[in-house]
Amino acid sequence: MKQPKLLLVSPVFYGYWKTIADSLSKQGYEVISHLYDVPTNLAERVRNKALHDLPERFRPASFENLVTHKAIARLTQERPDIVLVVKGDQLGDAWWHVLQESCTRYATWMYDELRRMRYSDKDFDLGLLGPIASYSPSDVQNLKGQGFDAVEIPLAFDSAMHFRPQPNHDITFVGARYLGREQMLNQLQSAGVPVKAYGKQWSRHWWDVARSRNLKDSGVPAGRDLDRSEAYGLMAGSPATLNIHGDQDGFTMRTFEASGVGGLQIIDRTDVSRYYEVGSEVLAYESGDELIELCKRILADPQWAQQIREAGQKRTLDEHTFDHRIKALEVLWK
């Protein structure tokens, strides 16, 4: 039986597209990947920077048109049976109209809230996206209420990523520097808990300060940016790693990565109980004092902590990898 040809149209997205493609291949698809935001020359690197960093109203239409026309050309060249678009908010309306008119089965997978993407524009027709999978329960509820075909599919752990655990003595945090996170880490430090934050917005290295323009020191011990493999190793080797959300209503990729690598995850949302058993697979807190207490117990009772990290990793590998998510996504085009 001939394999269905599937065109994966995705941003580079920290390399997650590779594992998504591999998981699709395991399900029996012939996968062709088109990375719509990969620059191939200096001019395109400038264009890519503009697309990511400039407010939409300041983006030259020619930039979006180039990305869009490349995607259309790839669709025309490959003539796939199925198209899976990951996020896709840099692609212009022409792409979606051509895709819809092609009569190819397709779906769109979101790892961000619609309100943070161009799809929130009043003039955009969400019906062009086809069946939609989103990590956001709120978006899925709203989409269904408007009559769209939508399903909630959470994010996942990339079990194919190779990493080496990096033993260390700090409670770690890897991610962007926001005021709430900074305050929480400072509170831990003031309570005598050893903490360290990683990322260019925390780092005091001169190049990271220049890139992030964060001239003020957070007061928290900090390390530089980490690639995903390094971040996985750091979380796996820490006594515990923090997962502090912003204003998301879905659960970030870190929710599944921190436990998936064998780290002990401490998360700021008790509703993580949808995916893990709180207290035995992950730890959750609702106040700074509760977080301090959890950290001190982890440092004082490594055997208890080890049991939780092992149970969390087992749950992740059993239920929360990209292989599991791809099986759930197939309902959108079958």
Score class of each variant (00 low, 15 high):
residue 248 Q to T: 14
residue 206 W to G: 02
residue 296 K to G: 02
residue 66 L to M: 14
residue 106 Y to I: 06
residue 80 P to I: 02
residue 155 L to N: 00
residue 166 Q to L: 03
residue 191 A to L: 13
residue 282 V to I: 13
residue 329 L to Q: 03
residue 274 R to V: 03
residue 234 L to P: 06
residue 189 Q to H: 11
residue 178 Y to F: 02
residue 302 P to S: 04
residue 279 G to R: 12
residue 54 L to R: 05
residue 85 V to Q: 07
residue 304 W to P: 09
residue 71 A to E: 13
residue 269 R to N: 08
residue 275 Y to T: 11
residue 21 A to L: 07
residue 260 G to W: 13
residue 144 K to W: 04
residue 240 A to P: 02
residue 300 A to N: 00
residue 191 A to N: 01
residue 216 K to E: 14
residue 154 P to D: 10
residue 271 D to R: 04
residue 87 K to G: 13
residue 31 V to T: 08
residue 55 P to A: 10
residue 213 R to Y: 07
residue 178 Y to R: 00
residue 147 G to I: 00
residue 118 R to K: 14
residue 333 W to Q: 13
residue 225 D to K: 15
residue 298 I to S: 02
residue 75 L to A: 00
residue 316 T to N: 08
residue 192 G to R: 07
residue 33 S to P: 10
residue 180 G to S: 00
residue 303 Q to V: 15
residue 4 P to M: 10
residue 269 R to W: 01
residue 75 L to E: 04
residue 317 L to K: 05
residue 124 F to P: 02
residue 49 K to A: 15
residue 94 A to Y: 10
residue 87 K to F: 06
residue 240 A to D: 03
residue 142 N to E: 15
residue 242 L to Y: 06
residue 33 S to W: 12
residue 2 K to H: 14
residue 119 Y to I: 09
residue 109 W to H: 10
residue 144 K to M: 09
residue 143 L to Q: 12
residue 225 D to R: 15
residue 200 K to H: 14
residue 175 G to K: 03
residue 234 L to M: 06
residue 256 F to Y: 12
residue 159 S to D: 08
residue 178 Y to L: 05
residue 123 D to W: 04
residue 283 L to K: 09
residue 254 R to H: 05
residue 214 N to Q: 15
residue 207 W to K: 14
residue 317 L to W: 00
residue 183 Q to R: 12
residue 183 Q to A: 06
residue 269 R to Y: 10
residue 166 Q to Y: 01
residue 119 Y to V: 00
residue 204 R to Q: 07
residue 102 S to H: 02
residue 64 E to G: 10
residue 76 T to Q: 15
residue 85 V to Y: 03
residue 305 A to N: 10
residue 143 L to V: 03
residue 105 R to W: 09
residue 15 G to N: 08
residue 1 M to W: 12
residue 153 I to R: 04
residue 173 F to V: 00
residue 72 I to N: 07
residue 325 R to P: 07
residue 245 H to F: 05
residue 188 L to F: 00
residue 243 N to A: 01
residue 7 L to G: 11
residue 146 Q to V: 14
residue 115 R to K: 15
residue 103 C to Q: 14
residue 220 V to Q: 04
residue 236 A to I: 02
residue 145 G to R: 02
residue 268 D to F: 09
residue 329 L to Y: 01
residue 183 Q to E: 11
residue 172 T to Y: 03
residue 163 F to Y: 04
residue 196 K to Y: 11
residue 123 D to I: 14
residue 138 S to W: 06
residue 269 R to Q: 06
